[in-house]
Amino acid sequence: MSETAAASAEPGLLYSRILLKLSGEALMGDQGFGLEPATVDRLARQVKAAHDLGIEICLVIGGGNIFRGLSAAAEGMERTQADYMGMLATVMNALGMQSALERIGVPTRVQSAIPMASVCEPYIRRRAMRHLEKGRVVIFAAGTGNPYFTTDTAATLRAMEMGASAILKGTQVDGVYDSDPRTNPAAQRFSEVSYHEVLTRNLKVMDASAIALARDNALPIVVFSLHEDGGLTDVLRGRGRFTRVGP
């Protein structure tokens, strides 16, 4: 696709501009740490498939595969310092995903909330909007740039700033369940669930600040499995298995 303008979206898609939220752990595959190239490449191909439909896409990727600030703070590290280290981990993941996307022909920009001009752009809202309009995938790194805020909150904030139609959250399971389906075979999956129920039942979709921000702005959150080939494009067409969190 040319970088001069985004392609027209395929008819019948539910969303025209999305923010895709991935955990850092999604990038490490079967490893216990870091980035597994084959897994990153597989996720990049899913993003490309959606991009080829004409969808405008931005991403937020966590850093838990490299460093988790909250866990480090629990071990005695000063929380603010630990959170900044976690933000730097998200920049590493963003650069890894950028490399994978550009290898398969998807123009990509990384914008960091912590300025580091040698490796990526600073976060500038108007510039990010222009990148999306030109058909580039934009990866937002370093969270909100502030300690005590998770990448879930950063994802919701950036989605609102970009005017995204929805947040699509790729997870290890195919939606939101009333308990962990990996340990409880009788767990029930929701096809739709309200923000209020997510908060009151502590359903672990995203952290409470992110859910509250989405609720206050009526921003849908769609939870689907990263492990389904074509899962992202199926969700965009309203197919497959997923859970929609909304009013």
Rank of each mutant, 00 (worst) to 15 (best):
F140E: 09
E75K: 15
G145T: 04
E161T: 05
T150L: 10
A154W: 09
L19R: 08
V173D: 04
D83H: 05
A73D: 09
V110H: 06
E36L: 15
K48I: 04
P220M: 13
D234V: 01
A117H: 08
T171R: 00
G34M: 08
H227P: 00
Q172V: 06
P147H: 03
F190G: 03
G62V: 06
L236E: 10
R127Y: 08
A154T: 04
T108L: 07
I104Q: 01
V60K: 01
L13K: 02
M87H: 07
G143V: 06
A73N: 11
L95R: 02
S165H: 15
A159C: 15
T183M: 03
A166C: 14
V198P: 00
G135Q: 02
N184E: 03
Q46G: 04
N184C: 04
R182Q: 14
A49N: 07
A154D: 13
M116W: 09
M160I: 12
V60S: 14
A82R: 00
I114R: 02
S16N: 15
F33I: 09
I167R: 13
M129P: 02
D83Q: 02
N93E: 07
R103P: 09
R127S: 10
V60E: 08
V110C: 10
S191G: 00
R17T: 10
G105V: 05
R45A: 12
N184L: 00
D152N: 10
N146G: 12
M85R: 01
G69A: 10
M28V: 00
A89K: 01
R158Q: 13
E161H: 07
Y123C: 10
T200P: 00
D83Y: 01
L95S: 12
E75N: 14
V40D: 02
V235A: 04
H196I: 03
I167C: 14
G62Y: 01
A7Y: 03
S165G: 15
V198C: 07
D229P: 04
A154H: 02
V106A: 04
G175N: 01
G34K: 11
Y84E: 14
V193M: 03
A82C: 09
T90A: 10
R189T: 05
R126N: 12
Q81T: 15
G238L: 00
E56I: 05
G135M: 06
S99W: 03
I211F: 01
Y15S: 08
A9R: 08
A49Q: 06
S16Q: 15
L14E: 14
T153I: 04
Q172W: 05
S194Y: 01
R103A: 12
R125H: 15
D178W: 00
R126Y: 12
E192S: 06
V245S: 01
A186M: 00
L20W: 07
A26S: 15
D174A: 12
E75A: 15
R158S: 11
T200H: 08
G86I: 11
A212F: 01
V235P: 01
T90L: 14
A9C: 04
